[in-house]
Design a protein around this nucleic acid. Structure first.
Length: 105
DNA sequence: AACATGACATAAG
DNA sequence: CCTTATGCCATGT
């Protein structure tokens, strides 16, 4: 079965381990095209509730959460991430320490 | 089919 | 710090 772009994106997002965060661009690059960052955002937006996809582990390159730290969605995302042990700095994910780095064995 | 929009990234000014 | 412009894909109108 040929996977469409969304399927590939979801597959990658599901590989992000708890306690880590990946950027949209990073997911896009793993999906095969770094310019898919915007599509990644759209894909996450299209995720149906209760799908089990860890959408909260995807943030902007500089660690900013969906809608900003002060938005309702952003606060919820921050709460989820903090619950997994992700560290924050000035309302942003501390990407220096918590950005996901996919390992190749 | 055409056009606009969107949970982004990058380059340029 | 800001705004524009371009690239990519799926959706809505």
């Amino acid at each position: 079965m040929g996977k469409n772009t969304f399927e590939i994106i979801y597959d990658i997002v599901c590989q992000i381990p708890g306690g880590k965060a990946a950027s949209y661009g990073q997911v896009a690059e793993l999906a095969g095209n770094r310019r898919l960052a915007r599509v990644v955002g759209y894909a996450l937006h299209a995720i149906p509730p209760g799908s089990g996809i860890p959408w909260h582990r995807v943030v902007k390159k500089d660690g900013e959460v969906f809608g900003g730290a002060e938005s309702p969605g952003g606060r919820r995302q921050i709460e989820l991430l903090k619950g997994e042990g992700v560290g924050f700095k000035d309302g942003h994910v501390d990407m220096e320490k918590y950005q996901w780095e996919k390992r190749r064995f």
